[in-house]
């Protein structure tokens, strides 16, 4: 029944909307787009609700939808980003978002460094380390094998450390 569908999707939004917004924001680095894509995620979830297997975790399913939407968006944006970079003569286009979202000063450098990583690295760090999905769940979201998740995360964290060191941020190690 559609009203049951709607109330479940609404419930999922309450539970996971914030988490999904933050994930998309870290991926696309544009607060307006992050909101639009978050909205699109839940609309899509409503449309394809019947295809959701009840025994699966709704959070993983929603993130999979968000991931697909984000990747499609980023692919469409690539030519524009390249043009922006050329126009701005290679200056970073990953400025801290303003207005809708604020990032506390303590974390702006880390946000910048994360923004400099390539998409797949950024994504695996966000899903594993920030959203704290398991290796298996991350693999389901990204359609990767467990070993690919582990390998890519290892490389991603090395790349992030290198980026932080490059930006002159003193990074404490355990």
């Amino acid at each position: 029944m559609t009203s049951e569908r709607k109330s479940e999707i609404t419930e999922w939004y309450h539970q996971h909307g914030d988490s999904i917004f933050r994930y998309i924001l870290l991926m696309v680095r544009d607060h307006q787009q992050a909101e639009d894509l978050t909205q699109e995620t839940f609309i899509k979830a409503f449309r394809y609700y019947d295809s959701f297997e009840r025994k699966a975790n709704p959070k993983t399913w929603l993130f999979r939808i968000a991931h697909n939407l984000t990747i499609d968006f980023i692919r469409k944006q690539k030519p524009l980003e390249l043009l922006k970079e050329l126009v701005l003569l290679g200056k970073s286009t990953s400025s801290v978002p303003e207005g809708i979202v604020e990032i506390r000063e303590n974390s702006t450098e880390l946000y910048q460094a994360l923004s400099q990583l390539k998409g797949s690295y950024r994504e695996v760090i966000v899903l594993r380390k920030i959203r704290e999905f398991s290796i298996q769940e991350t693999g389901e979201i990204l359609s990767w094998s467990d070993s690919k998740v582990k390998n890519t995360l290892s490389r991603a964290l090395s790349a992030l450390e290198k980026q932080l060191n490059k930006e002159g941020i003193i990074h404490e190690k355990n």
Binding site: G99, V101, E102, S107, I130, E161, H171
Partner: peptide, 17 residues
């Protein structure tokens, strides 16, 4: 690790209006 903690902190430091 310290980086893990910083990443978690980043998540908390993102304030959505």
């Amino acid at each position: 690790t310290a980086l893990d903690n910083q990443l978690k902190q980043l998540d908390q430091d993102i304030i959505w209006s």
